[in-house]
Design a protein around this nucleic acid. Structure first.
Lengths: 213, 213
DNA sequence: CAATAATTTGACCGTTTGGTAAACATTACA
DNA sequence: TGTAATGTTTACCAAACGGTCAAATTATTG
């Protein structure tokens, strides 16, 4: 009778796992399209196929839902950068980083837009994560790139802005999808568009870093 | 006594000009930070320094405000691309296009974020503009770039994705400003950051298009 | 099976929101 | 200066919102 909130219980039941998953899936849909303030609990509940109080049984507030969602996304979002290997070959490392980021934009556009929405509004929920773990990771990888440049393996360039430009060019295809589709028309869609983008970005970055094929 | 809404009157008075300007300025502040749904009329009214009904005297609905604002922004936003000159030198044309876009991201970040917010939510208000005038303009300039490539003045590349990548890399500094600042720390701020970005992007695109300095 | 814990829901609450009505104030101009 | 058009404000409304409550239902387990 007293309400032991799902999030507080020690061991999570099967139902809890399933329902929380179901809710976060719906929340991703709604938050990524409307932003935090624009999304409503009723809307998420409807998409999730459950009543509003039921949803609030698993996440006590709208913000708790958003926080759970964005923390999870932020984590997987950085996986490609973590995979960036200092010991590897500069050309193939950068090339495959670009491709992996582009694949994520293609396969997880909602996650990209959720993140974009959050950063756009000032990133109140993830400010600490950006200044802490994210910055540290980028610092580390920037150092790798700088070392490559110093060793003459790639052209000298600002590693931070290189990373920014890879982020922005790839995520653009998720975040600005509507615009991209409007400009390209429907004839180029899906995989064709993806391959065109991949080819172009590869050429751009390989050339810009003086890595000739 | 009957209410001749400002927007409907034939000739606009001095007060109308001033107040509408004042409102749109405030609306830019609020909409760009919170998105359409996240922004409230009360908030805009407060920033504009007038009462809510007074604001609604000039713009009958929240959507009317947003529409007026975004149409104006969209127009000026495309100016740099319009300035792109087919007769000019490819290198300097592309270089100055990048610089101009980067300057806009620096000087008009709110406009950039307003636009980003609108596209992120599916661009319901400007879908037609994207598929019409915007597409036509991009088509035209893409043809110019293609001709340059054919003439061997720049490397062969997909002109559409080239334009997308210039848009995304430059606007990134406005839209993802919080993230950029979090990663770079505060030591690099303002003009220093801008110059670093400009130098990097110039190198990237000039190299990627095989235009060697 | 019994009883306890976990889950689900309809009804509800206070606040915020977009927008209106009408009275009041100010400006423009004959 | 008078008066009609324009501009401004206070008070208000209905709908939507985030969230609560208690009762009902379902699952778990001794």
């Amino acid at each position: 009778m007293p309400i032991p909130r799902a999030a507080q219980t020690q061991r999570r039941t099967r139902i809890q796992e399933e329902k929380e998953e179901q809710i976060l899936e719906a929340a991703l849909d709604v938050f990524s399209q409307n932003g935090f303030k624009g999304a409503t609990i009723d809307q998420i509940a409807e998409v999730a196929g459950m009543s509003k109080p039921n949803l609030l049984y698993y996440f006590r507030t709208k913000e708790a839902m958003h926080r759970a969602l964005i923390e999870r996304v932020l984590d997987t979002w950085l996986d490609p950068l973590r995979a960036f290997d200092a010991e590897g070959n500069p050309e193939s490392e950068i090339r495959s980083y670009i491709r992996r980021k582009l694949e994520m934009a293609r396969d997880f556009p909602r996650e990209s837009r959720l993140f974009a929405n959050e950063v756009l509004r000032g990133a109140p929920l993830i400010e600490d994560a950006l200044k802490g773990p994210l910055k540290e990771l980028v610092d580390e990888k920037a150092e790798v790139i700088r070392a490559w440049a110093k060793a003459g393996k790639i052209a000298k360039c600002d590693p931070y802005h290189l990373i920014f430009s890879i982020w922005s060019t790839t995520q653009h295809y998720a975040d600005f999808d509507v615009q991209v589709r409007a400009v390209l028309g429907q004839e180029k869609d899906g995989d064709g568009r993806f391959e065109d983008a991949a080819r172009f970005l590869e050429q751009l970055f390989m050339g810009g870093l003086s890595i000739r094929n």
